[in-house]
Design a protein around this nucleic acid. Sequence first.
DNA 1: ACAAAAGTGTTCCTCTTACACCCATGA
DNA 2: TCATGGGTGTAAGAGGAACACTTTTGT
Lengths: 250, 250
Amino acid sequence: MGNPNLTYDNQAISVDCTVFGFDGNALRVLLAHRRRMLPTGVETDDLKLPGSLISDAEDLQSAACRVTRELIGARSVYLKQMEVFSNPQRVQGQELTWINTYYGVALSRVLTVAFFALVKLDDKLMRYTRRKDGEWVELGSVRRLALDHNKILITAIDYLMKLFQQEPIAFEFLPRKFTIKQLQRLYETVFDIEIDNRNFRKKILSLEYIQPAGACEEKVAHKPAQLYAFDRNAYKRENKKIFKLNFVYK
Amino acid sequence: MGNPNLTYDNQAISVDCTVFGFDGNALRVLLAHRRRMLPTGVETDDLKLPGSLISDAEDLQSAACRVTRELIGARSVYLKQMEVFSNPQRVQGQELTWINTYYGVALSRVLTVAFFALVKLDDKLMRYTRRKDGEWVELGSVRRLALDHNKILITAIDYLMKLFQQEPIAFEFLPRKFTIKQLQRLYETVFDIEIDNRNFRKKILSLEYIQPAGACEEKVAHKPAQLYAFDRNAYKRENKKIFKLNFVYK
DNA sequence: ACAAAAGTGTTCCTCTTACACCCATGA
DNA sequence: TCATGGGTGTAAGAGGAACACTTTTGT
């Protein structure tokens, strides 16, 4: 028999997605409006990460996908579970009232599973999101968000930098065909560093999984750059061979 | 108003902990017995990862800690959230009946947050766990576990190897003072490789955060080895300096 | 012709790898 | 004295880092 001192009622699980995009110069995060009436009768509008309670029939991945697609349409998204925020007091008072009203439930507690997401951000997507009442806000310009979403965002930014060094997620930000310079600028932006272009090219060109796409930029006011593409299969092959341990082995 | 087609009832959250230990030769995982009566009236006993539903008042970390300490006592544990298993069908039929009976609840679905844990395994802990009816099973000898716990275990093993390359978790397995050989054997076990001892020593001795503990092994039937200790502060300092990116930067 | 970004090589240095023998201790 | 693991050095190669100028295109 389970511990009789513990009770297990009125909990629910939500997902909240931190969706990142790269506009060529800066990282942006996808935010949604939360418009509501305060008890005082005043209308307010603050921003939040896109999220939702999960329903009985769906798993977390589906819920996160559903929530994200409401603001970006049927595009492909890189989506990954990050961390569960489970402090019993993370949502309380007015914030809890809002959730209970919004979903028509009577919860005393909401845990949220934070998702980490990446999309290829372009002008078309920017316009789509605008029509759906979403915002793509530059990371440097994010102000106070609803609930504990600033905390989630900070966690996601850390996670982004870590993951960037371990997995080839850079290509989730860029169009299928990209220039080496675009890739370099992405690295420079994510880590807030400057990279020597000669060394960067040398490194990139030495990677078997980044291959010339046999085309060039067009309509640019300078020498057009060669386009490259990421080959996921080649990457997997490469990665199996090179088991990158810092230590020596036979 | 939330999507009226979705319902949000009868969900609960559990934690399941994959606790690893190193006995000097092999990795072992901590398992608990699940003894119960089948509907046919037959008594069965299978093994599971230690776990529990979370109660209203606790966060996930506390729940995971509570569950683990039931089998290892008040020792320090390295505990980290890993992944949520959220398939709506992950627990059903007899398995779901068992949970509802055991906890005295009426759930239609249980999500579980899988935790990853490491402890310093020694003879004393081995005996303690045995008294609490737990088992330390070698990774190679784990058979079919209850629920979806084999899947969780596999995820945890992958996670262990990944984390091992990124964070200094090796020292969570070893006593405060350890020999370089112990550390080497741990690496060899985790990655199932052989390491050249000269190169390994050279590498380890070059790390500023592994320092001589000013003592030697005792009562061994060979030349006693120097003991070393991990200095977490030195590690943090070192890690801030060396921002290890594969690419070049200024 | 000029502005803007693409593209290119070399040197130095650090870290990784491969490899074999003597040493100190307890039994 | 023997069995057991502890402890040591060197040379070759690969990859990272620092550094400045020419080329190609559109306007």
